[in-house]
Simulated scan of single mutants.
Amino acid sequence: MFFWYSALILMADALQVMDMRLRQLAAGNGTSDEMFLMVTEKLEAAAEARTIFIRGGDCSHVLDHYRKVVAANIERLPAR
């Protein structure tokens, strides 16, 4: 798959997750557990990206990793 296409899909999915989280916060449904999870997920994803680069991976591998993380959020968030 083209790098730019993966990047565009990741951006669209990330915007969807941000919209879901902002709507939860605006409705008063955002919990401190969700906020903690949001921060820890970002730190863990960044650490995994670093590991991918250290092991010789390239940007497309990192994008694939981030797309999996964001896709998991898309599936999890509407359930709340």
Rank of each mutant, 00 (worst) to 15 (best):
E34T: 01
D58S: 10
A27M: 07
V70C: 00
I54F: 12
E41D: 12
N29Q: 13
A45N: 05
S6P: 03
I9D: 06
M20T: 03
A45V: 03
L10E: 03
K68G: 15
V39R: 11
E34F: 00
L63M: 07
A72H: 15
R50T: 09
E41N: 10
D19E: 05
D58Y: 08
V39L: 02
L22M: 08
H61G: 04
R23T: 07
Y5A: 14
C59H: 09
L22R: 13
Q24W: 00
A7W: 10
D64K: 15
L43A: 02
S32F: 14
S32N: 11
M1D: 00
R80S: 06
A46D: 10
G56Y: 11
G57W: 09
D64R: 15
S60M: 08
M20N: 07
L77S: 04
R76L: 11
I54D: 12
L77W: 06
A46E: 07
R23E: 09
E44F: 04
E41L: 05
S6R: 15
E41A: 06
M1A: 00
V39Q: 07
A49T: 09
L43N: 04
D13R: 15
M18E: 04
I74H: 01
A71V: 02
F36C: 02
M38D: 09
D19G: 02
G28M: 10
E34R: 03
A12P: 09
I52K: 13
R55I: 01
A71C: 00
L77R: 09
A27R: 14
R21S: 02
V62N: 07
E44N: 13
R23S: 06
E44C: 04
F36M: 06
G30V: 03
T40D: 01
M11E: 12
V69W: 06
T31Q: 00
C59L: 13
Q24N: 07
Y66S: 10
R67I: 01
S60E: 08
G57M: 09
Y5I: 14
I74Q: 03
E48N: 15
D58K: 12
A27W: 03
I52A: 11
D13F: 06
S60R: 05
F53E: 10
Y5R: 14
L43C: 05
F2W: 07
M11G: 10
K42N: 00
A7H: 07
L8F: 10
A45W: 01
N73T: 05
E48P: 09
I52P: 13
E34V: 00
S32W: 15
R21N: 01
R55M: 02
G57N: 05
V70G: 01
R21L: 04
G57Q: 03
L10V: 01
V39S: 05
L22A: 08
T51M: 13
H65W: 06
A79M: 13
M11V: 15
D19Y: 11
L25N: 01
A26H: 01
N73K: 15
D13N: 11
R80I: 09
E41P: 03
D64C: 12
K68M: 12
E41Y: 08
D33N: 12
Y5D: 09
A26E: 03
L63P: 04
L77F: 03
M18N: 06
E41R: 11
I52D: 09
L77A: 04
S60P: 00
E75S: 14
L43K: 04
